[in-house]
Computed example of a mutant assay.
Amino acid sequence: MAKGTRKIRRTQETRDDGDRKSKKPLAPKPQLPDPLSGTALRGILLRLGLPLLAVWMLCGFIASLVYSTTVKTVLIAIPAVLTVLAIGLVVWAVRQAKKARGVAGILSQVETAEDRKAAIQKLETDFKKNDPAALFARAQLELQEDPRKALATLEQIDLDKVMASVADEARGQRAMIHLVLGEVSDARRLVDGINLSRHQEPRTRAMLAAVCAEAWARSGAAKKATETLALFDSEDPAFEPIRPQLYRAQAYASAHVGDLKGIRRALKRLSSQDARMLGAFMMKRTHPLLQREAKKLLEQSGAVPRKMIIDRGRA
């Protein structure tokens, strides 16, 4: 057994060396949304403009019915002040969007290990040390090689000083890494601070829900996890980039409520994305049902040699 394990390790090391030397892309170039696209800007203007228009109309109507100059002035001043604040908010949003576009541009150029190193260096030099957008991007790049380093990067985001929605995303990213590392209690502590109702963008909300659900399922709140996941249709085309996370959460939630059919359905869907993702369920402390079903699918897929599956299960 030890000889077989050493052989697998040598094979993996050889493969890793080849990957480091290769100039081939590590992964397909991500399709990153443009934060300054017409659709995005139109959405911001509509969310701010329509309520402001309603306030102007209401205050104007009331002002036309009163005779007091003071009251008229107050009624006109209220929407005027709100308009100034809205303009300031739009200016701030555009600045943040430009920054996000810059970060997205850096990430979109990453195709090889060398590109990744260059991108990390650029993020460190071109952005402020505590800039959340740059820290998220750095962590995303570092995660491919060193989850602990990515976690340390995300921990630089001061959750008490950033916007609540940004703090939630930081908690979610950190919790996801803790879950991958098997540190469920740390993940649970983080997800309990996430408020899903703060997030209106469907994909962001679904991603955070998946991380929360997995943490809840693995820490004794499987029913809550199942109810949360039921609110999202993992087959929705909008959720295609985050389906693996949703399937993973569904698998854990199903396991901890004893739903064998749910386990098999989630694992098959995950396997259809990439059978190698099932390897995560072969680690220690994974629910026995999940281990058993994941092992079956891995053996059937042929993605991982049977001997490697046995060694990993006993590691």
Rank of each mutant, 00 (worst) to 15 (best):
T5Y: 01
R6G: 00
I8L: 02
R10S: 03
R15P: 00
D16E: 12
D16A: 10
L32Q: 11
P33D: 00
A40E: 10
L41I: 15
I44G: 00
I44L: 15
L45G: 02
L53S: 05
M57S: 15
F61Q: 05
V66K: 00
T70G: 09
V71T: 08
K72I: 07
I76Y: 13
R95S: 15
Q96F: 04
E111Q: 15
E111T: 13
A118V: 11
E124I: 03
K129M: 04
F136P: 01
D146F: 06
R148S: 11
K149G: 08
A152G: 06
D158L: 11
L159E: 13
D160E: 14
D168A: 15
R171C: 08
G172S: 13
G172T: 08
G172L: 11
Q173N: 13
A175Y: 09
M176T: 07
V180Y: 14
G182T: 13
V184P: 01
L196E: 09
H199N: 10
H199I: 12
P202Q: 07
R203Y: 03
A206K: 04
V211Q: 02
C212R: 11
W216V: 00
G220C: 05
T226P: 01
F232R: 05
A238G: 08
A238Q: 12
F239S: 08
P241L: 11
P241W: 13
P241R: 13
R243K: 15
Q245W: 13
A249L: 09
A249I: 10
S254N: 06
V257M: 06
D259Q: 09
D259H: 12
D259V: 09
R264N: 15
R265P: 00
L267Q: 07
K268C: 11
R269K: 15
S272Q: 15
L278F: 04
G279E: 04
K284A: 15
R292D: 10
E293A: 12
S301C: 04
G302Q: 02
P305L: 02
K307S: 01
M308Y: 00
I309C: 02
D311N: 12
A315F: 04
